[in-house]
Amino acid sequence: MMTKTVAVIGGGPAGMEASKELAFNGFQVVLLESGARLGGHMNQWDRLFPNKRPAGEILESLYRNFPGSITVMTETNITSIGRNADRFILRTAGRDVIEADALLVCTGFRVFDAILKEEYGYGIYDNVITSVDLEQWFKEKRPVLTSHGRVPATVGFIHCVGSRDEKSGNLHCSKVCCVTAVKQAVELKEKLPEARIFCFYMDLRMFGLGYEELYKESQEKYRIQFIRGRLSEAFENMDGSLMAKVEDTLTAKPLRINLDLLVLMVGFLPSDGTAAIGSLLGLTFNPNGFLQPRDGHLQPHDTEQQGVFLAGSCKGPKNLEETLADARSAVLRIRQYLTN
Protein backbone atom coordinates (compact mmCIF):
# COMPACT_ATOMS: atom_id res chain seq x y z
CA MET A 1 0.00 0.00 0.00
CA MET A 2 1.29 3.43 -0.88
CA THR A 3 2.01 5.76 2.01
CA LYS A 4 -0.84 8.16 2.30
CA THR A 5 -0.19 11.90 2.48
CA VAL A 6 -1.86 14.38 4.78
CA ALA A 7 -1.61 18.11 4.17
CA VAL A 8 -1.79 20.03 7.43
CA ILE A 9 -2.79 23.65 6.89
CA GLY A 10 -1.52 25.95 9.60
CA GLY A 11 1.69 25.53 11.61
CA GLY A 12 0.64 26.70 15.06
CA PRO A 13 0.59 24.35 18.05
CA ALA A 14 -2.33 22.30 16.65
CA GLY A 15 -0.72 21.92 13.22
CA MET A 16 2.71 21.09 14.65
CA GLU A 17 1.40 18.58 17.16
CA ALA A 18 -0.84 16.90 14.58
CA SER A 19 1.97 16.77 12.00
CA LYS A 20 4.26 15.04 14.46
CA GLU A 21 1.65 12.52 15.47
CA LEU A 22 0.70 11.84 11.84
CA ALA A 23 4.34 11.24 10.97
CA PHE A 24 4.76 8.92 13.97
CA ASN A 25 1.75 7.03 12.63
CA GLY A 26 3.50 6.48 9.33
CA PHE A 27 1.87 9.11 7.15
CA GLN A 28 3.61 11.47 4.78
CA VAL A 29 2.98 14.97 6.06
CA VAL A 30 3.16 18.32 4.34
CA LEU A 31 2.83 21.18 6.82
CA LEU A 32 1.84 24.47 5.23
CA GLU A 33 2.26 27.72 7.11
CA SER A 34 1.49 31.19 5.79
CA GLY A 35 3.85 32.89 8.26
CA ALA A 36 7.63 32.89 8.31
CA ARG A 37 7.95 30.32 11.07
CA LEU A 38 6.09 27.61 12.89
CA GLY A 39 4.63 28.00 16.36
CA GLY A 40 1.84 30.49 15.71
CA HIS A 41 0.85 32.76 18.55
CA MET A 42 3.18 30.87 20.92
CA ASN A 43 6.02 32.85 19.37
CA GLN A 44 4.62 36.09 20.78
CA TRP A 45 3.75 34.77 24.19
CA ASP A 46 5.95 35.01 27.26
CA ARG A 47 4.29 32.81 29.86
CA LEU A 48 1.16 30.70 29.96
CA PHE A 49 -1.74 30.53 32.36
CA PRO A 50 -2.46 29.20 34.89
CA ASN A 51 1.02 28.26 36.11
CA LYS A 52 3.08 30.95 34.34
CA ARG A 53 5.01 28.31 32.45
CA PRO A 54 7.27 29.88 29.80
CA ALA A 55 5.68 29.60 26.38
CA GLY A 56 9.13 28.74 25.05
CA GLU A 57 8.92 25.38 26.81
CA ILE A 58 5.88 24.46 24.76
CA LEU A 59 7.58 25.59 21.57
CA GLU A 60 10.64 23.58 22.46
CA SER A 61 8.52 20.53 23.09
CA LEU A 62 6.74 20.99 19.77
CA TYR A 63 10.06 21.17 17.94
CA ARG A 64 11.61 18.29 19.94
CA ASN A 65 11.72 15.05 17.95
CA PHE A 66 10.13 16.86 15.05
CA PRO A 67 10.38 14.18 12.32
CA GLY A 68 12.62 15.12 9.42
CA SER A 69 10.21 13.34 7.11
CA ILE A 70 7.70 16.18 7.46
CA THR A 71 7.80 18.58 4.56
CA VAL A 72 7.50 22.03 6.11
CA MET A 73 6.55 24.89 3.80
CA THR A 74 6.50 28.31 5.44
CA GLU A 75 5.38 31.58 3.86
CA THR A 76 3.06 29.50 1.79
CA ASN A 77 -0.39 30.71 0.82
CA ILE A 78 -2.86 28.32 -0.69
CA THR A 79 -4.70 29.76 -3.66
CA SER A 80 -6.83 26.83 -4.74
CA ILE A 81 -7.83 23.38 -3.57
CA GLY A 82 -9.14 20.91 -6.12
CA ARG A 83 -9.85 17.23 -6.15
CA ASN A 84 -8.76 14.45 -8.44
CA ALA A 85 -10.72 11.33 -7.53
CA ASP A 86 -9.91 10.86 -3.80
CA ARG A 87 -6.87 13.14 -3.82
CA PHE A 88 -6.69 16.81 -3.02
CA ILE A 89 -4.63 19.09 -5.25
CA LEU A 90 -3.43 22.23 -3.46
CA ARG A 91 -1.89 25.07 -5.39
CA THR A 92 0.10 27.79 -3.70
CA ALA A 93 0.84 31.38 -4.54
CA GLY A 94 4.41 30.25 -5.19
CA ARG A 95 3.07 27.86 -7.87
CA ASP A 96 3.78 24.74 -5.86
CA VAL A 97 1.38 21.86 -6.28
CA ILE A 98 0.77 19.57 -3.33
CA GLU A 99 -1.20 16.37 -3.52
CA ALA A 100 -2.74 14.84 -0.42
CA ASP A 101 -5.17 12.13 0.61
CA ALA A 102 -6.57 14.10 3.51
CA LEU A 103 -6.50 17.68 4.74
CA LEU A 104 -6.26 18.81 8.31
CA VAL A 105 -7.26 22.44 8.81
CA CYS A 106 -5.41 24.00 11.76
CA THR A 107 -5.70 27.62 10.72
CA GLY A 108 -6.37 28.94 14.20
CA PHE A 109 -7.35 32.37 15.42
CA ARG A 110 -6.40 36.00 15.39
CA VAL A 111 -7.02 38.57 18.09
CA PHE A 112 -9.63 41.29 17.88
CA ASP A 113 -8.40 44.57 16.43
CA ALA A 114 -8.75 46.88 19.43
CA ILE A 115 -8.85 49.96 17.19
CA LEU A 116 -12.44 49.02 16.45
CA LYS A 117 -13.49 49.83 20.02
CA GLU A 118 -13.04 53.50 19.23
CA GLU A 119 -14.21 54.69 22.62
CA TYR A 120 -11.33 52.87 24.33
CA GLY A 121 -8.81 54.88 22.35
CA TYR A 122 -6.36 52.18 21.29
CA GLY A 123 -4.06 53.72 18.70
CA ILE A 124 -5.16 57.19 19.84
CA TYR A 125 -4.43 57.49 23.54
CA ASP A 126 -0.79 57.06 24.45
CA ASN A 127 -1.25 54.66 27.36
CA VAL A 128 -3.77 52.19 26.04
CA ILE A 129 -2.26 48.84 25.09
CA THR A 130 -3.60 45.35 24.43
CA SER A 131 -2.96 42.11 26.25
CA VAL A 132 -0.82 41.06 23.27
CA ASP A 133 1.31 44.22 23.57
CA LEU A 134 1.80 43.63 27.29
CA GLU A 135 2.79 40.01 26.72
CA GLN A 136 5.30 41.25 24.17
CA TRP A 137 6.71 43.68 26.76
CA PHE A 138 7.06 40.79 29.20
CA LYS A 139 8.73 38.63 26.58
CA GLU A 140 11.17 41.35 25.61
CA LYS A 141 11.80 42.08 29.29
CA ARG A 142 10.92 45.65 28.54
CA PRO A 143 10.26 47.71 31.68
CA VAL A 144 6.60 48.52 32.13
CA LEU A 145 6.44 52.30 31.84
CA THR A 146 3.94 54.81 30.62
CA SER A 147 4.55 56.61 27.36
CA HIS A 148 5.98 59.43 29.47
CA GLY A 149 8.51 57.06 31.01
CA ARG A 150 6.87 56.86 34.43
CA VAL A 151 6.25 53.73 36.46
CA PRO A 152 2.48 53.33 36.38
CA ALA A 153 0.85 53.67 39.79
CA THR A 154 -2.52 52.39 38.60
CA VAL A 155 -3.24 49.88 35.86
CA GLY A 156 -6.61 48.70 34.60
CA PHE A 157 -7.29 45.50 32.69
CA ILE A 158 -10.44 45.64 30.60
CA HIS A 159 -12.02 42.25 30.00
CA CYS A 160 -14.14 41.26 27.00
CA VAL A 161 -12.72 43.70 24.43
CA GLY A 162 -14.33 42.56 21.21
CA SER A 163 -15.93 39.55 22.88
CA ARG A 164 -19.56 39.19 23.97
CA ASP A 165 -20.16 42.46 22.18
CA GLU A 166 -22.80 42.89 19.53
CA LYS A 167 -21.31 46.27 18.63
CA SER A 168 -18.14 44.46 17.60
CA GLY A 169 -20.17 41.81 15.83
CA ASN A 170 -18.87 39.10 18.16
CA LEU A 171 -21.37 37.31 20.33
CA HIS A 172 -19.07 34.63 21.67
CA CYS A 173 -17.00 34.46 24.82
CA SER A 174 -13.31 34.25 23.97
CA LYS A 175 -12.88 32.13 27.05
CA VAL A 176 -9.14 32.51 27.65
CA CYS A 177 -8.97 36.28 28.23
CA CYS A 178 -10.31 36.22 31.81
CA VAL A 179 -7.57 33.97 33.09
CA THR A 180 -5.01 35.73 30.89
CA ALA A 181 -5.96 39.04 32.54
CA VAL A 182 -5.52 37.52 35.99
CA LYS A 183 -2.18 36.02 34.97
CA GLN A 184 -0.95 39.29 33.49
CA ALA A 185 -2.22 41.29 36.47
CA VAL A 186 -0.26 39.04 38.80
CA GLU A 187 2.87 39.26 36.66
CA LEU A 188 2.54 43.02 36.53
CA LYS A 189 2.14 43.21 40.30
CA GLU A 190 5.31 41.14 40.67
CA LYS A 191 7.13 43.73 38.57
CA LEU A 192 5.38 46.76 40.08
CA PRO A 193 4.69 45.90 43.73
CA GLU A 194 3.50 49.44 44.48
CA ALA A 195 0.99 49.59 41.65
CA ARG A 196 -2.74 49.32 42.21
CA ILE A 197 -4.10 46.93 39.66
CA PHE A 198 -7.74 46.59 38.69
CA CYS A 199 -9.65 44.16 36.51
CA PHE A 200 -12.92 45.43 35.06
CA TYR A 201 -15.10 42.48 34.12
CA MET A 202 -18.63 41.50 33.17
CA ASP A 203 -18.31 37.92 34.38
CA LEU A 204 -15.17 36.09 35.38
CA ARG A 205 -14.98 32.79 33.59
CA MET A 206 -12.39 30.69 35.36
CA PHE A 207 -13.23 27.49 33.54
CA GLY A 208 -10.07 25.43 33.91
CA LEU A 209 -8.51 23.66 36.82
CA GLY A 210 -6.09 25.98 38.51
CA TYR A 211 -7.74 29.10 37.12
CA GLU A 212 -10.00 29.81 40.08
CA GLU A 213 -7.04 29.14 42.33
CA LEU A 214 -4.99 31.71 40.41
CA TYR A 215 -7.84 34.20 40.69
CA LYS A 216 -8.02 33.64 44.43
CA GLU A 217 -4.27 34.00 44.76
CA SER A 218 -4.42 37.22 42.74
CA GLN A 219 -6.90 38.64 45.23
CA GLU A 220 -5.28 37.48 48.42
CA LYS A 221 -1.57 37.52 47.67
CA TYR A 222 -1.37 40.16 44.92
CA ARG A 223 -4.33 42.28 45.94
CA ILE A 224 -5.64 42.69 42.44
CA GLN A 225 -8.98 44.47 42.69
CA PHE A 226 -11.85 43.19 40.63
CA ILE A 227 -14.58 45.64 39.74
CA ARG A 228 -17.64 44.27 38.08
CA GLY A 229 -18.40 46.78 35.37
CA ARG A 230 -17.68 47.17 31.70
CA LEU A 231 -15.77 50.15 30.41
CA SER A 232 -18.10 52.49 28.56
CA GLU A 233 -15.42 54.94 27.49
CA ALA A 234 -11.94 56.08 28.29
CA PHE A 235 -10.47 59.51 27.87
CA GLU A 236 -6.98 60.86 28.01
CA ASN A 237 -6.20 63.28 30.83
CA MET A 238 -3.80 66.17 30.48
CA ASP A 239 -0.94 64.15 31.98
CA GLY A 240 -1.51 61.26 29.57
CA SER A 241 -3.27 59.05 32.12
CA LEU A 242 -6.67 57.70 31.28
CA MET A 243 -10.01 58.56 32.79
CA ALA A 244 -12.10 55.40 32.67
CA LYS A 245 -15.86 55.34 33.11
CA VAL A 246 -17.48 52.15 34.31
CA GLU A 247 -20.47 51.38 36.41
CA ASP A 248 -19.42 49.81 39.66
CA THR A 249 -22.37 47.47 39.30
CA LEU A 250 -22.04 46.04 42.80
CA THR A 251 -22.58 49.46 44.34
CA ALA A 252 -24.87 50.47 41.45
CA LYS A 253 -23.09 53.76 40.86
CA PRO A 254 -21.18 55.23 37.94
CA LEU A 255 -17.48 55.20 38.73
CA ARG A 256 -14.69 57.35 37.39
CA ILE A 257 -11.15 56.17 37.90
CA ASN A 258 -7.81 57.45 36.66
CA LEU A 259 -5.45 54.84 35.31
CA ASP A 260 -1.86 55.30 34.18
CA LEU A 261 -2.03 52.30 31.88
CA LEU A 262 -5.03 50.58 30.35
CA VAL A 263 -4.70 47.02 29.08
CA LEU A 264 -7.39 45.79 26.69
CA MET A 265 -8.01 42.04 26.82
CA VAL A 266 -8.55 41.48 23.13
CA GLY A 267 -10.76 38.58 22.16
CA PHE A 268 -10.39 35.53 20.01
CA LEU A 269 -11.55 35.65 16.40
CA PRO A 270 -11.19 33.24 13.48
CA SER A 271 -7.94 33.95 11.67
CA ASP A 272 -7.85 35.22 8.12
CA GLY A 273 -6.53 31.79 7.17
CA THR A 274 -9.53 30.13 8.79
CA ALA A 275 -11.86 32.34 6.79
CA ALA A 276 -9.92 31.84 3.54
CA ILE A 277 -9.42 28.07 3.76
CA GLY A 278 -12.98 27.56 4.98
CA SER A 279 -14.23 29.42 1.91
CA LEU A 280 -11.90 27.61 -0.50
CA LEU A 281 -13.16 24.28 0.80
CA GLY A 282 -16.78 25.30 1.10
CA LEU A 283 -16.87 24.45 4.80
CA THR A 284 -19.63 25.49 7.17
CA PHE A 285 -18.97 28.48 9.40
CA ASN A 286 -20.72 28.96 12.70
CA PRO A 287 -22.34 32.36 13.34
CA ASN A 288 -19.11 33.73 14.84
CA GLY A 289 -17.07 32.80 11.79
CA PHE A 290 -15.30 29.77 13.21
CA LEU A 291 -15.41 26.47 11.33
CA GLN A 292 -18.24 24.20 12.27
CA PRO A 293 -17.49 20.48 12.66
CA ARG A 294 -20.12 18.03 11.55
CA ASP A 295 -21.08 17.26 15.14
CA GLY A 296 -19.43 19.11 17.99
CA HIS A 297 -19.91 16.23 20.43
CA LEU A 298 -19.54 13.12 18.33
CA GLN A 299 -17.65 14.08 15.17
CA PRO A 300 -15.59 17.05 16.31
CA HIS A 301 -13.04 16.80 13.46
CA ASP A 302 -15.28 15.89 10.54
CA THR A 303 -16.65 18.39 8.08
CA GLU A 304 -19.24 18.25 5.36
CA GLN A 305 -16.37 17.59 2.93
CA GLN A 306 -15.05 14.06 2.91
CA GLY A 307 -11.38 13.92 3.77
CA VAL A 308 -11.28 17.41 5.28
CA PHE A 309 -10.75 17.52 9.04
CA LEU A 310 -10.51 20.28 11.63
CA ALA A 311 -8.37 20.73 14.71
CA GLY A 312 -7.60 23.48 17.16
CA SER A 313 -8.87 27.01 17.49
CA CYS A 314 -10.18 27.33 13.95
CA LYS A 315 -13.27 25.80 15.56
CA GLY A 316 -13.53 28.33 18.37
CA PRO A 317 -11.65 29.69 21.37
CA LYS A 318 -9.48 27.06 23.03
CA ASN A 319 -6.72 27.03 25.54
CA LEU A 320 -3.46 25.28 24.72
CA GLU A 321 -4.34 22.05 26.51
CA GLU A 322 -7.51 21.73 24.50
CA THR A 323 -5.76 22.64 21.27
CA LEU A 324 -3.05 20.02 21.67
CA ALA A 325 -5.51 17.34 22.77
CA ASP A 326 -7.75 18.21 19.83
CA ALA A 327 -4.83 17.89 17.43
CA ARG A 328 -3.98 14.40 18.73
CA SER A 329 -7.58 13.37 18.59
CA ALA A 330 -7.80 14.58 14.97
CA VAL A 331 -4.84 12.34 14.07
CA LEU A 332 -6.71 9.29 15.38
CA ARG A 333 -9.68 10.22 13.25
CA ILE A 334 -7.56 10.72 10.14
CA ARG A 335 -5.81 7.40 10.68
CA GLN A 336 -9.16 5.72 10.88
CA TYR A 337 -10.26 7.48 7.69
CA LEU A 338 -7.14 6.67 5.68
CA THR A 339 -6.67 3.07 6.77
CA ASN A 340 -10.26 1.98 6.18
Binding site: E118, G123, I124, E236
Partner: peptide
Protein backbone atom coordinates in the same frame (compact mmCIF):
# COMPACT_ATOMS: atom_id res chain seq x y z
CA UNK B 1 -2.63 61.62 22.12
CA UNK B 2 -1.77 60.28 18.70
CA UNK B 3 -3.28 62.44 16.01
CA UNK B 4 -2.57 59.79 13.35
CA UNK B 5 -4.96 57.48 15.19
CA UNK B 6 -7.71 60.05 14.97
CA UNK B 7 -6.95 60.75 11.34
CA UNK B 8 -7.27 57.07 10.53
CA UNK B 9 -10.72 57.03 12.11
CA UNK B 10 -11.74 60.26 10.42
Amino acid sequence: MKIEGKKRLW
